[in-house]
């Protein structure tokens, strides 16, 4: 019995290792290209010989990388915090509290995900310009203008709602019978078992904010408010692609997100089997 289980795990490991190769090949190419001098890209060599950090130096010096990076961090952290608060509260209401037409509200909210961003850009941009004219440190060309449309995301509300739906009503009822108010039930009973879902929410809202390109491009106008993806686009030249620099920029952008993911995984999603819901 145990031997069979061992064998099964070994086979599983082989499958995972094989698919990891498929998952990693494009990244292998990304990293090696970023280490290849621009003139030697596409010269047919698989490995850079010798590898050079020249492209990274270019990325870090040609554009104000530090400033863009800091802006991206501020935007992403703010968006994540706002979403954790707003989305979780709204989702709990839509999943577990008495409200008329909860399902309809959910679908109406989902239309904000269905509408292609491009169509909303002009009205939204005008709004931000007007806000900026009324209050110079808000709206267009400020970080607040980048953050505002991401402050609440229906994807997050929906994710949390579906998680809350799966929380058994019985544990809520037990708390209610103990005389707990809805707010303290959410805080003391529901949130402590919600960390895997919240970690997932952090990952996805963080990723979306970190990688967003079109809206930050439209709403910012100066280096002071540009985020990393918008800033990295400035590395391009009009008629050609510098593959080394593009790939170095890609690596530098993706790395913080991968680290964040690994940390959240280890901390919240992986080790939680012991603390899962008891019915």
């Amino acid at each position: 019995m145990i031997r069979r289980r061992r064998l099964g795990l070994a086979m599983l490991w082989v499958v995972l290792a094989a698919s990891s190769v498929i998952m990693l090949v494009p990244w292998f190419w990304t990293v090696t290209t970023s280490l290849t001098p621009a003139a030697e890209v596409f010269s047919g060599n698989l490995l850079p010989n010798p590898p050079t950090l020249e492209a990274y130096a270019q990325v870090l010096t040609l554009i104000p990388f530090g400033g863009y990076f800091l802006n991206s961090v501020v935007v992403t952290v703010t968006v994540v915090v706002l979403n954790v608060v707003f989305d979780t509260c709204a989702a709990y209401a839509l999943a577990k509290l008495p409200l008329p037409g909860r399902g309809v509200i959910m679908i109406v909210l989902l239309t904000t995900l269905m509408i292609p961003m491009q169509v909303n850009i002009i009205p939204l941009y005008r709004m931000m310009v007007n806000v900026h004219n009324a209050v110079p440190w808000l709206g267009a060309d400020t970080l607040s203008g980048i953050i505002a449309p991401s402050a609440v995301q229906v994807l997050g509300i929906f994710l949390m709602r579906q998680f809350f739906v799966s929380v058994p009503d019985s544990i809520l009822e037990a708390a209610r019978l103990d005389g707990a108010g809805e707010w303290s039930i959410l805080r003391r009973v529901v949130l402590p078992i919600s960390w895997p879902a919240i970690a997932t929410l952090v990952i996805f809202t963080g990723l979306a904010a970190w990688n967003d390109f079109l809206w930050p491009l439209i709403v910012t106008g100066s280096d002071a408010s540009r985020t990393l993806p918008v800033g990295l686009a400035l590395l391009s030249k009009k008629n050609t692609v510098n593959w080394s620099e593009t790939m170095a920029g890609t690596v530098l952008t993706a790395l913080p997100m991968i680290v964040l993911f690994v940390i959240l995984q280890r901390r919240f999603i992986e080790g939680l089997t012991a603390g899962s819901v008891k019915e």
Binding site: R126, M127, N130, V131, N133, A134, L138
Partner: peptide, 12 residues
């Protein structure tokens, strides 16, 4: 008030 007026008057 400034934000509210700006938001209200702008897009539509």
């Amino acid at each position: 008030i400034g934000v509210a007026v700006a938001l209200g008057s702008s897009a539509l």
